[in-house]
Simulated scan of single mutants.
Amino acid sequence: METEEKRKTALVTGGSKGIGRAICVELAAAGYDVVINYRSDLAGAEETLVAVTAVGGRGEICRFDVREAEAVEQAVADLVARRGGIDVLVNNAGVVADGLFLMMSKDKWQSVIDTGLSGFYHVTRPVLETMVPRRSGAIVSISSASSLMANRGQANYAAAKAAINAASRVVAAEVARLGIRVNVVAPGLIDTDMIAAAPKEQIKSLIPMARIGRPEEVARVVRFLCSEDASYITGQVISVNGGMF
């Protein structure tokens, strides 16, 4: 039986629903204690915690807004003080505010950049700072197919996610010799609230596998990248998109 000392902690931002929830459950089933971050959806985070418990896992809920640097730093410090460290970070928090670029307001642009890209910095930097002395850790960020192909109406989202791809490759190179791996997963069309209003039958015709992906299919790739099975993989952007490109 696994001892308390051997249990690892995974922090998942945006864990209250969708892909984030699936990642929390997958990591819990793999033996991690999961810290479920949320910003405003407490009920959703509690549902995720129930799902984590249902697979025999352990977890806790942790509220902070990834856009707020000081709040994030305090939350990370508190987690490290209580748990001894964070072994895995999954940057999943993100928002969409679609619109044609020519008519996109500054607020729409900034809200997506602040959550997706600045949020990546606000969370990753303090967590990485705690991983370096331990010379171990895995960081996986959730990007998007929109970062790799043109998707009209998503200039803000594509910019944030493409920047995460690039930043992750650089960070991976900087910390590779310290035993820390940094990778990205770029999902395609996944069955979450984000595409609830989309014409799904029309979408399927664009996907070689002729179906929309499931959140757990993304979560399994994240779990692999966090595991020792991926011990020689870093600086990669891995697409999970049914063969779209």
Results as ranks from 00 to 15, higher is better:
residue 186 A to E: 06
residue 235 G to W: 09
residue 226 C to S: 14
residue 180 I to H: 09
residue 227 S to N: 12
residue 215 P to R: 07
residue 225 L to E: 10
residue 193 D to V: 04
residue 185 V to E: 05
residue 229 D to I: 05
residue 233 I to F: 09
residue 226 C to K: 06
residue 214 R to F: 13
residue 202 Q to R: 13
residue 201 E to M: 08
residue 202 Q to W: 03
residue 230 A to N: 09
residue 203 I to H: 04
residue 187 P to Y: 04
residue 227 S to D: 14
residue 238 I to W: 05
residue 214 R to L: 14
residue 223 R to P: 09
residue 208 P to A: 07
residue 203 I to Q: 05
residue 226 C to I: 10
residue 189 L to S: 02
residue 180 I to W: 12
residue 222 V to Q: 12
residue 186 A to V: 06
residue 201 E to V: 06
residue 185 V to I: 07
residue 180 I to D: 07
residue 197 A to F: 03
residue 198 A to E: 03
residue 228 E to M: 13
residue 212 I to K: 11
residue 231 S to C: 12
residue 237 V to C: 08
residue 230 A to R: 05
residue 226 C to M: 09
residue 214 R to N: 07
residue 222 V to H: 12
residue 190 I to Q: 04
residue 190 I to G: 00
residue 188 G to L: 02
residue 189 L to Q: 01
residue 240 V to M: 02
residue 216 E to L: 13
residue 235 G to H: 11
residue 190 I to L: 04
residue 235 G to V: 11
residue 206 L to D: 02
residue 193 D to I: 01
residue 192 T to I: 05
residue 215 P to T: 13
residue 221 V to E: 10
residue 239 S to P: 01
residue 209 M to L: 14
residue 203 I to W: 04
residue 191 D to Q: 01
residue 180 I to F: 09
residue 185 V to A: 08
residue 199 P to Q: 03
residue 226 C to N: 10
residue 232 Y to C: 07
residue 238 I to K: 05
residue 196 A to H: 07
residue 224 F to A: 12
residue 195 I to H: 00
residue 201 E to Q: 09
residue 239 S to Y: 04
residue 219 A to I: 08
residue 233 I to P: 03
residue 227 S to A: 12
residue 200 K to M: 02
residue 226 C to P: 12
residue 241 N to R: 00
residue 237 V to R: 06
residue 193 D to G: 11
residue 205 S to R: 15
residue 200 K to Y: 01
residue 211 R to F: 02
residue 189 L to H: 01
residue 235 G to K: 13
residue 181 R to A: 14
residue 230 A to W: 10
residue 240 V to H: 02
residue 193 D to C: 02
residue 210 A to E: 15
residue 208 P to C: 10
residue 219 A to D: 14
residue 184 V to M: 07
residue 188 G to Y: 01
residue 195 I to M: 00
residue 193 D to L: 06
residue 195 I to K: 00
residue 224 F to K: 12
residue 221 V to T: 14
